[in-house]
Design a binder for these strands. Sequence first.
DNA 1: ATGATAATGAAAACCATTTTCATTTAAAGG
DNA 2: CCTTTAAATGAAAATGGTTTTCATTATCAT
Lengths: 156, 156
Amino acid sequence: MRRKRIRNWENRLREEGYKITSPRKTILSVFEQLGGHPNAREVFNDLSLRSPDIGLTTIYRTLELCVRLGILKKYDFGDGHSRYEIANEKTDHHHHIICEKCSKVIEYRDFLDEETMLIKKIQNKLERKYHFKIKQHALDFYGLCKECIDEKQGSE
Amino acid sequence: MRRKRIRNWENRLREEGYKITSPRKTILSVFEQLGGHPNAREVFNDLSLRSPDIGLTTIYRTLELCVRLGILKKYDFGDGHSRYEIANEKTDHHHHIICEKCSKVIEYRDFLDEETMLIKKIQNKLERKYHFKIKQHALDFYGLCKECIDEKQGSE
DNA sequence: ATGATAATGAAAACCATTTTCATTTAAAGG
DNA sequence: CCTTTAAATGAAAATGGTTTTCATTATCAT
Ligand SMILES: [Mn+2]
Ligand SMILES: [Mn+2]
Ligand SMILES: [Zn+2]
Ligand SMILES: [Zn+2]
C-alpha cells in the first residue's frame, strides 16, 4: 500500500513525452534527499563529486523543465539566484521568511484558519474588482534572522 | 501652506551629503510625473528624447542610491528586471497583482481592516516563533490580467 | 538491435547590472 | 564670480546568472 508515488515525477515526464534520463534522475534525487531551496549552482556543486559529468547547462534545463511540469517550484528571494524546491501535493502550500542579510529561508505552513480564509476572501475581491484570474500568491516576510541580529549587536 | 514637500528627496540627498545634480533631478522627475513601476531601461528610454545625454549607468546608480535613502522602493516581480517606484509617506503601503503573461502590475491599497490586523498578528507570531526581526512583507498575487485572458480565449 | 528523435555538454552568446577610469560638475570658500 | 576638490558622470569593459548553439550521445518505440 505504501510507496506509491515515489518518483511520481517520472510519470509526469512520461505523460508529457519527455525521456527519463540519467541526469534527470540524479538532479531530482538532490531535491528528494536534501530538501531546502537550492539554486542551480548549489545543485551543481552538490553533484560535483557524485556526478561530475553533469553539466551546469543540463541542470538549468532540467530545473526549468520541472518547473514547467509542476514538479519543482521556482522562487526569487531577491539575492540574484533563482531557487527551487520540490512541489508536493496540494497540502504543501507554505510561505517564507527570508533574512535580508544572509538569505536564510524559513518556511512556515502552520497557518491560522483565519489566515487561509482571509487570503481566499481577498483573492475573490481582487479577481472581481480587477478582472484578474489569480493563480497563486506569495506572502513573504523579510527581516533579520536571530544570528544576523546577534552579529549586528556584537559589532556596535 | 501647500507644496511643502515638493522635491523632499532633494533634502534627503543633502542630508546624506550627496549632490543635487542635473541627472538626478531628471531621473527623479520621471517618477514624479509618470508613476508606475519602471525598470532602469524604461527610465532610460523615457529620457532618451528629453535627455539623451544621461547614461544608463547613471540611471542604475541613481536608482540604487535612492533605494538606499528610501526615496524609491525596489521590487522584483519575477520578469528579470528590477522595478522601482517612488516611496511616499507612511500611508502608501500597498500590495501588487502581477500578470504573469504581460507583466502588468496593479496596485491595491484598499485593505480590509481584518487584513491589516491579521498581517500584524501573523508577523508577531512569526517573530516570536522563529526569532526573526521582521522588517517588511509582500503579499503579491500572480495570475492573468483581463487582456491576457481574452487573448488566450481568442487563440484557442 | 535499429533508427528516429530528444537530451546532453562545452563553448559561446545573452543581457541585466556593476565596475573601472578618465573627464566633468556641484558646491563651499575666497 | 573664481578656485578648489571631492563627488558624479558616461563610455567601455567586466561580471555573473542564465540561455542558446551545435556537434555528439542516449533513450525508447519498433
Ligand atoms: Mn519553501
Ligand atoms: Mn506599487
Ligand atoms: Zn540571517
Ligand atoms: Zn497581462
